[in-house]
Amino acid sequence: MGLFSMTKMVFRSVSRKPATLMYPVRPAKSAAAFRGRILIEPLKCIACRKCEKSCPTQAITVDVKVRTWQIDRLRCIICNCCVEDCPTNCLSTENIYTNPMTVREGIEIYTVPPKPERKKETVDNSKTEE
């Protein structure tokens, strides 16, 4: 009994497809609920700084005067706290994660509309996104 305990498993493996995916040629699988990265709709943002306060890793910086919302992708742990605390629901989580980087970057700055009236959307992707 001791010698052929593996046989069943071996035969099963032979008749089966490989368990691994050819990542990155084929995209990685991810569930709908998977927390990949934080997305913002800058138009809806009111720069209330609630997300900045709730962030445990201090990845989010909101500048109320200059009206910018900034996230450090490498600092963010995608805990979803900011999404839960956002009063205008402008933050959401996507199930695709940020691409890996070879140098220390990943700070993204978004311009949010000024306080009283709403201006046209201006998204500043001066750093990198995808």
Partner: peptide, 29 residues
């Protein structure tokens, strides 16, 4: 070595369920 691969193949089912229910594979949050 092959036993190692087989154990981790089964672990994948567990991780998939964790991912689908919590949103994280190893750090569930």
């Amino acid at each position: 070595e092959s036993l190692f691969m087989n154990a981790w193949r089964l672990r994948e089912h567990i991780l998939d369920d964790l991912e689908a229910t919590t949103g994280g594979r190893v750090i569930q949050g």
